[in-house]
């Protein structure tokens, strides 16, 4: 009975892994590597077919696709489905991390420390969570060093929280899909954008932006989740193997790739003549005056939902200072 099902229970199970990155992106390589590791570790029991480019589900439908079993494993951005990951979105707040490794490690840690996260991931088994390198401000035509410089500039914003503090700073936040960002910057529909270095390179924005202002204003967070039913059907042995391979290990690994890619992006941008300005602590303190109310609003919002917003935020800050 049980013994045989343990041994051959998952006889060559192939899982469909869907994500929105173009196949040329390094995350596709990461997934292929993960697939190989998984196959080795489970003695060929579990393997993965990767479907890049959102060919099986729209980018904002990935969580749903995994939860309902349309795909077995899904990777996407939490921010594409706002309000559905209230606690996870703590990492999207400004100044949460200086790099992707730190952000990813801390996100995974917080996720494991607070049981309240489980509701956000109902129907799935999170394999790992991670963040990209932090979002910076990129502008066309005008360099931004001070709060005053930003006055009246139209900036593409990645999240409602970012829009809120951009407005407080006197800028005009504009929402648009990322694939319109290039032409919008080129023609001057927007004067700037907030994005990680990774995205600047991926979306070719370094062709059109002139300046970068470094302040770690935002982090894009992403999930890799497996359908709960698929997970439950795996044998204990294979579940353990997957647990060992994913979690903190993959969060760190993915973070490293994003940081490395971010560094390459900086170099490439410099070669293209993008001028980079790093805000000093003093200067950032000026910005924080305008940005901090947004953080408080976030905490209040999450607390209103009956979730430990303050605790999670404090813990995230504590971890980021380590």
């Amino acid at each position: 009975g049980d013994d045989t099902s343990e041994a051959s229970g998952d006889a060559a199970k192939n899982l469909d892994f869907s994500h929105f990155f173009p196949s040329s992106h390094f995350m596709e390589e990461e997934i292929k590597q993960f697939s190989k590791d998984l196959k080795d570790k489970t003695d060929g029991d579990v393997s993965i077919t990767s479907y890049p480019g959102a060919s099986l589900a729209e980018p904002d439908k990935h969580y749903d696709a995994a939860a309902t079993g349309s795909v077995d494993i899904a990777l996407s951005v939490h921010g594409y489905t706002p309000n559905q990951f209230p606690l996870t979105s703590v990492m999207e707040l400004p100044f949460m991390s200086e790099n992707a490794v730190e952000g990813s490690k801390n996100l995974w840690k917080i996720y494991n420390e607070f049981d309240e996260f489980d509701d956000e991931y109902a129907g799935t088994k999170p394999l790992w969570l991670y963040t990209t390198d932090p979002g910076q401000l990129f502008t066309v035509g005008k360099q931004v060093k001070s709060v005053e410089d930003l006055e009246g500039m139209k900036i593409r914003s990645p999240s409602p929280e970012t829009s809120e503090w951009l407005e407080a700073l006197g800028a005009t936040p504009v929402s648009m899909p990322m694939n319109e960002n290039f032409e919008a910057l080129e023609r001057g529909v927007v004067d700037g954008t907030i994005a990680p270095w990774e995205a600047v390179k991926t979306w070719g924005l370094d062709e059109v932006v002139d300046y970068a202002t470094i302040g770690n204003f935002y982090s894009t967070t992403m999930f890799v989740v497996m359908n709960q039913g698929v997970w439950d059907d795996l044998s204990k042995k294979n579940q353990e193997a997957i647990n060992e391979l994913t979690g903190k290990r993959m969060a760190e690994k993915t973070g490293e790739r994003f940081d490395q890619f971010g560094k390459d992006a900086v170099k490439q941008a410099k070669d293209k003549g993008v001028e980079i300005y790093e805000l000093s602590d003093d200067e950032l303190n000026n910005w924080k005056e305008y940005i901090e109310p947004t953080i408080q609003n976030w905490i209040d919002d999450v607390e209103d939902r009956g979730l430990p917003g303050q605790k999670v935020y404090d813990r995230a800050v504590e971890l980021s200072n380590k």
Partner: peptide, 17 residues
């Protein structure tokens, strides 16, 4: 069914929620 799932997950739009 999609609507029910969406309701349970409290999905909203980005800017206006």
């Amino acid at each position: 069914e999609n609507g029910v799932r969406t309701m349970e997950r409290k999905a909203t739009t980005t800017d206006l929620a």
